[in-house]
Design a protein around this nucleic acid. Structure first.
Length: 142
DNA sequence: TAGGCCATCTGGTCCT
DNA sequence: AGGACCAGATGGCCTA
């Protein structure tokens, strides 16, 4: 685990110093803060686990360098768009690519993509303020 | 050494 | 009241 900020210990915030109120209240506040910190740490660890899982299924530029979180999201977006294009344009992506895609889909366990099937399609206006259409799809070396 | 990336803490807001 | 989520702040590590 990475070293933690020395100035920010689990003992609670600086602003929650003992005041004129009872020491019990201070103790309760400190305990609550520590619990909240622990929950936040756990939540972020879960988020990072999800990023790691995403990195494994997304194309990498190279094997040596790990994609950053931002790069992982961008790559996932491009990858999904590329796959979607293959699915929606069967003439252009005929036999060889299509066979490859079928193989990939066969290898996928249903429970791993069930969440995607339940996902509501985003509307076009949702992307108005994003770089959705500005990011180049990656070259897939199949 | 500067800049990028990251982990952690923290306070605010929303929800149950 | 307490938990989940979020964004800002801060400091550590790494690389060019």
């Amino acid at each position: 685990m990475k070293s933690r900020r020395p100035s920010c210990s689990d003992s609670g915030s600086e602003s929650s110093e003992p005041d004129s109120k009872s020491p019990e209240k201070y103790e309760t506040a400190t305990r609550r803060r520590m619990a909240a910190n622990a929950r936040e740490r756990k939540r972020m660890q879960g988020l990072n686990t999800a990023f790691d899982r995403l990195r494994k299924v997304v194309p990498q530029w190279g094997q040596d360098k790990k994609l950053s979180k931002y790069e992982t999201l961008q790559m996932a977006l491009s990858y999904i768009m590329a796959l979607s294009r293959i699915l929606t344009d069967p003439r252009r992506h005929a036999a060889p690519h299509r066979q490859w895609l079928d193989l990939q889909l066969e290898a996928v366990e249903p429970q791993t993509f069930s969440c995607l099937l339940e996902y509501d399609q985003p509307r076009a206006q949702d992307y108005v303020h994003s770089d959705f259409y500005q990011f180049e799809a990656p070259q897939l070396h199949l």
